[in-house]
Simulated scan of single mutants.
Amino acid sequence: MPRSIQSNNFEKEKLPKNAPVTSEYARTIKCHRVEAYEPINWLILGCRDFFAMPIISGFYGLCFMAAAVAIVLLIQWQGTHLVIMPALIIFMLIGPFLALGLYDASWACEKGHQPSLLHSMRAIGRNSVSQWAFAVLLAVAMMFWMRIGALLHALYPSVTGAPWQDFLPFLLIGSAVGIVLATIVFAISAFSIPLMMERRVDMMTAVFTSVNAVRSNLLAMALWAAIIGLGVLIGFATFGVGMLITIPILGYGTWHAYRNVISRRHH
């Protein structure tokens, strides 16, 4: 029996035995257009799942908190901001894999199953090749971002105590480049991970589908990006403690966003 349809009933329900197998590569799965306020509903559903699954929420919250604390301590130990980007690259590598467990837990609730921590941890290996490829893609994007930042640092005033006007080129150009790169990273990652987990699609199909969905729902996704950014900011501002709450809620909310936006497979 193929691995994709073995194990327990939960797995069988996700991928029926007679489900058609497609080898189509780098396709774009259709998406729905949603109202601009829908991210508020995703956040509410994320909060509902957070309280419904305290053990799973606490476990993944602790994992993300530990990663955030490690980054903060590394910055303090090194005494320089130059380690921020390398640390964030590592965070970008492990973050998507940890989030898989949150998506799996919400999916189990959606199916009417009892979510379990062990089952959610097994989600990491459900489409490991595509997931690792995507993690490497994110890491490369972050390293490119870091290189651009190093080049822009040439615009930083070399004179100590320079007037604020001398900082404008660095701040304006740096902010513009940062917004563009952050938008690209968000667009390719908004729905890619849950899509690769649920349907086991290849990385390029997940990326194309995610970009298309974000482009088709600009207002809603801009609001969702702002909510995610605020949640991560709260997490780091509280020395990682806030991530015990914010990241699990955002993870569950991302699954509900995926279900709301990406067209479902028909059997």
Rank of each mutant, 00 (worst) to 15 (best):
D49H: 11
N41P: 04
L88Q: 08
D202R: 02
M121E: 03
M85T: 09
C47Y: 09
M243A: 02
A154E: 06
A36V: 09
V159Q: 09
F134H: 13
P16E: 09
V21R: 13
G112S: 11
T254C: 10
A108N: 09
I89N: 02
H113D: 14
P2R: 13
T28F: 05
G149A: 15
H32R: 15
A162H: 10
F51L: 13
R147S: 14
V129I: 14
I84P: 06
A213H: 06
L43K: 01
W164T: 13
N41C: 07
A213Q: 07
T246S: 06
L73W: 05
I55E: 13
S4F: 12
M1W: 10
N212Q: 12
F144N: 07
L219C: 10
L93S: 07
M143I: 15
A36F: 10
M221K: 00
L15M: 10
S158C: 04
M85A: 07
A237L: 12
A123D: 10
R122C: 08
T183I: 02
G235P: 08
H113G: 03
L171H: 02
A68H: 00
G61N: 08
R264A: 14
A36G: 10
N212K: 14
M196I: 07
H119Q: 15
V241F: 11
P86E: 01
G112L: 07
M197Q: 08
W164R: 11
M197D: 08
N41T: 14
F64E: 02
S106K: 02
V159W: 00
H153P: 03
I29W: 09
V129F: 11
W77E: 02
N127E: 11
L151G: 15
G161Y: 00
H113M: 08
S128C: 08
F97Q: 12
N8L: 10
I40C: 02
E35L: 00
T183Y: 00
I40R: 00
Q131G: 14
L244R: 01
